[in-house]
């Protein structure tokens, strides 16, 4: 039970991060190699924000939950406007540029934040007497922790991720913004002809994608610590998830995230973590070679 709960936490955070990557790829056809660094930036900013706010740890945490993803989203949108737009989203040059971005973000964090790993205190862990709320784009919702004291925060992570993913789904399916984004995905030039501000949609999408990664990171820092090199694994795992789930497909991405996240703990029982990673990377490569539409996708003519 506890092991699968651990897996579910991994899966929840992974789903957020991977959906961010998938959105950006699906709508903009951009492979963002710096995605893991946006994740890391979210974690580091969460540490900064929560230590800046005094008082109850929960205040700092909630502030981080709001501020860090927005800041990261803004940084990403800025990168989109100043860099990606200027190279016209050419696929190969975009990858080169996001590799550059990866190193710049990572190393600037190293220069300012330093090489240490720092923890962020969870807003609640043992104080289970209080009812708590979860924060999604639907607003505040009351939430009663169960009696499992050590896992209360983890349950919150899972619930929060589910709410946010639901919100993203609603945004894509039922709002004007979502409609505009999907139209842009289908045909950027056509969308432009119909008066959709494609440039702004791209900047928003890139920001949203990075913001989702950052949100995942804020949720995980009370469990893992914030470190300037922490972006590598989420990047790799997100790639695996997005590729296996079918490039650009949101439901596929979420299913794959659940599968990978939940099986991560189980695989590690049988193999060493290194061997598990070797098998995972080879799997991704072979899926791309032999089933580019993903394991769950259907081939389109």
């Amino acid at each position: 039970m506890l092991a699968s709960l651990e897996g579910a936490v991994t899966a929840a955070v992974l789903a957020l991060t991977a959906v961010g990557l998938s959105l950006v790829f699906g709508i903009m056809r951009v492979v963002n190699v710096a995605h893991g660094e946006f994740f890391m930036l979210g974690a580091v900013l969460a540490w900064w924000v929560s230590s800046w706010f005094g008082g109850h740890v929960a205040i700092g945490f909630v502030a981080a939950l709001v501020i860090a993803p927005m800041l990261v989203g803004a940084v990403a949108a800025l990168a989109d406007v100043t860099i990606l737009k200027r190279i016209d989203y050419d696929p190969e040059r975009t990858i080169v540029v996001t590799i550059g971005l990866l190193y710049v973000i990572q190393q600037v964090v190293l220069m300012t934040y330093g090489p240490e790993a720092r923890p962020v205190e969870p807003p609640f862990n043992t104080r289970l007497a209080l009812p708590w709320f979860e924060w999604g784009e639907n607003g505040l919702q009351l939430y009663w922790p169960w009696g499992l004291s050590t896992t209360s925060y983890k349950l919150f992570v899972i619930a929060a991720a589910a709410v946010v993913l639901e919100a993203v789904w609603l945004l894509m399916r039922h709002t004007k913004m979502g409609l505009v984004m999907r139209a842009t995905q289908l045909d950027g030039e056509m969308a432009q002809v119909f008066g959709i501000p494609v440039e702004r949609v791209y900047a928003f999408t890139f920001g949203l994608g990075a913001g989702l990664a950052a949100l995942g990171a804020v949720l995980i820092v009370p469990i893992q610590q914030a470190h300037y090199l922490m972006g590598g694994d989420p990047l790799l795992l997100s790639f695996i998830v997005v590729i296996i789930g079918g490039l650009g497909s949101l439901p596929g991405t979420v299913v794959a995230a659940l599968l990978i996240g939940m099986s991560d703990g189980i695989i590690s029982v049988f193999f060493s973590p290194t061997l598990a990673k070797i098998l995972a990377t080879l799997l991704v490569a072979l899926v791309l070679v032999f089933r580019p539409q993903g394991l769950f996708g259907t081939r389109t003519a």
Partner: peptide, 17 residues
């Protein structure tokens, strides 16, 4: 600085642009 890879990143971006 120990963060010399930042230069690599910046040069990559500048070259592409």
């Amino acid at each position: 600085t120990s963060a010399y890879m930042a230069v690599v990143g910046a040069v990559l971006i500048a070259l592409t642009l």
